[in-house]
């Protein structure tokens, strides 16, 4: 059973690597450390508890960075946020059911379970063909669910905005400093913005109300937007 558990962890780490790299998420090494320590925890942890654990393991990280990473992990389905009445926010490891295969929507975090006998058989055949003795398997397909695709409700980063596109700010990621800068300059969640110029490289120009801003690419990556409906 213990080995089984470890196996799961190894696989999850692989998935983590693949997904985070695929999405070009910054500071990968540090985020991976956070993930590793998080996997070792058995209970619901708060950010400060996790920070302490990281400290014990000799990793000096910033709390706002750890929080950001946990949020990303939620987005990709590795962790789940829970909050008991007025208490602090805690995160738990997402234990996925053993007996089903899963399709996980990275946008709405919805998990679709499915079972397909053909696929199960095929897996056994593949393993057998390579002389591999299969003990356990876990199948997870990450992607965007039909609902999200249909309504195009998934937040995308501002970098993808095209000229003339009408968008609405949904969320910010990244450190507190950068977010404070945007907030005090009057860019907030719920603001409606229009793309004015978006070159394939470098800064972009957006307009919010009667104000116009130039935003660096790095910062734009941290602004999550959605198309606006009229």
């Amino acid at each position: 059973m213990k080995q089984n558990h470890n196996n799961n962890h190894v696989r999850e780490k692989e998935q983590f690597k693949k997904l985070f790299k695929q999405e070009h998420i910054d500071n990968f090494e540090e985020r991976f450390k956070v993930f590793e320590i998080f996997l070792q925890t058995k209970r619901h942890v708060t950010v400060s508890e996790l920070l302490e654990l990281l400290n014990e393991n000799g990793y000096q990280l910033d709390s706002s960075f750890v929080r950001d990473t946990l949020k990303l992990m939620c987005r990709f389905g590795f962790a789940k946020k829970i909050q008991f009445e007025d208490g602090p926010v805690r995160y738990e490891h997402r234990h996925l059911g053993r007996h089903h295969d899963h399709m996980i929507c990275t946008k709405c975090r919805n998990i679709i379970e499915f079972e397909d006998q053909q696929l199960e058989n095929l897996q056994i055949q593949i393993a057998a063909a390579r002389g591999f003795h299969m003990l356990q398997h876990k199948m997870e397909i990450y992607g965007i669910c039909s609902n999200c695709l249909k309504t195009r409700m998934h937040p995308m980063s501002l970098v993808m905005a095209k000229q003339g596109e009408r968008l609405i700010i949904k969320d910010f990621t990244g450190g507190a400093g950068a977010r404070m800068r945007l907030l005090t300059m009057g860019l907030r969640v719920g603001d409606e913005l229009d793309g004015i110029t978006s070159p394939s490289k470098g800064q972009m120009v957006i307009a919010v109300d009667c104000r116009r801003y130039v935003i660096g690419r790095g910062l734009a990556q941290k602004v999550l937007v959605e198309p606006r409906k009229n």
Binding site: V47, S48, R67, G87, V89, R179, M180, L183
Partner: peptide, 21 residues
């Protein structure tokens, strides 16, 4: 700060800025 951060799941400065708005 840690207490508030855990409570609101965000850095206190962000929460306070939101409240001002």
């Amino acid at each position: 700060r840690e207490l508030l951060a855990d409570r609101f799941n965000d850095d206190p400065e962000i929460v306070m800025t939101d409240e001002r708005y």
